[in-house]
Design a protein around this nucleic acid. Structure first.
Lengths: 196, 196
DNA sequence: CCTACCGATCGGTAGG
DNA sequence: CCTACCGATCGGTAGG
């Protein structure tokens, strides 16, 4: 699919380097053929980001919905995220990590869409953490916003180190750090796996 | 200075977007005048990275050297890093965060230089942590490599969130998370500040 | 969907 | 350090 390929390239070289001509060569279309499909470079970028959002929903969020709420579900989502990055669903690791860094200092619809997707991911994690608190599986004074920030930072840290140094050990480190953090805040740590 | 300006642009738009022509306009030089100073685009990029390394050494590492070893010195270095990102010494936040993401999926001398600088930063933190363990200020079974990974992930997480959402609260969150983590591992948490 | 073209910009070279 | 130029590539348009 056109946008699948565009998202793969963007994860490695950035959304700005997904040029109409280059995408045309890979898809055996002329440059103007690709252009006419989207109407502008910005629309191609927006469509690419939307395609990436769908992939994350299908690969990570939807399978996770089948689990009951609680601390284990929070952990499983983190574990799936690490697996998603490690297995290179996108060859450049997390699509939103790469593109949010690329667009963080720019303005416009593309940046806003990426920033909004990041906020939704953050909010989703905060909600899952909140449910685990309500269920009494996390200490009642757990700071949801802070814990979500910490988990995302540890996930992104693994993605970044694994890509930069070609070292998959970062995924195990990240998993251990996340499990340690969740165990510290758990009312009953025995529901969590002993190791990654 | 030429390279100072190049590093500022690179932190915002990436090292690849520091073009010879553009740098020339900003410096009131012709494109070929800039070119002749470096000999190639790659040499310009390498010189820019080296200049950024010097700025980090002067702004963060050298002042930190005056402190005695121990857990407080580890904390102060993290605090300085957050201040460095927040004060926009580079307008795009951490130069190495931005450029390491940009180059993580490429090959060549520029990527190797950036990856090496990141490894040195990681190693430096591990050493400071190791000294704090030897001094008995961190629990003797503290995993140096894991703790350094966690601290860098939390620092980078603040840089990323602050830039993407224009929200400086991320710095305070990161500082709280780091202090919490250091307190957990400290043999005497009272040497650390109570809040950020 | 295509060919053919526009002006702008890229890294780099020739020649001074 | 400069002007003038090279071929390649960019997003986008004209016209079919």
């Amino acid at each position: 699919m056109v946008l699948q390929r565009a998202a793969e390239i963007a994860s490695v070289e950035g959304l700005e380097n997904v040029s109409l001509g280059r995408l045309g060569v890979e898809l055996h279309l002329s440059k103007s053929g690709v252009f006419s499909l989207f109407g502008s470079k910005e629309e191609l970028q927006l469509a690419t980001v939307r395609a990436a959002i769908r992939i994350y929903i299908e690969d990570l969020l939807n399978p996770n919905r089948r689990l009951p709420h609680g601390i284990v579900r929070v952990w499983r989502l983190c574990e799936s995220w690490l697996g998603h990055s490690r297995s290179r669903v996108f060859p450049g690791g997390c699509f939103f990590f790469a593109t949010s860094v690329e667009f963080s200092a720019r303005r416009g619809q593309v940046r806003d869409l990426i920033a909004g997707a990041q906020r939704e991911w953050n909010g989703h994690l905060e909600q899952l953490i909140g449910r685990a608190i309500e269920l009494g599986e996390l200490e009642p004074d757990t700071d949801r916003v802070l814990l979500a920030f910490e988990l995302i930072a540890l996930l992104d840290g693994a993605n970044r180190a694994a890509l930069l140094h070609g070292d998959d050990a970062a995924y195990a480190r990240s998993g251990r750090a996340i499990l340690n953090r969740l165990r510290d805040l758990a009312t009953d740590a025995s529901v969590l796996p002993a190791t990654v």
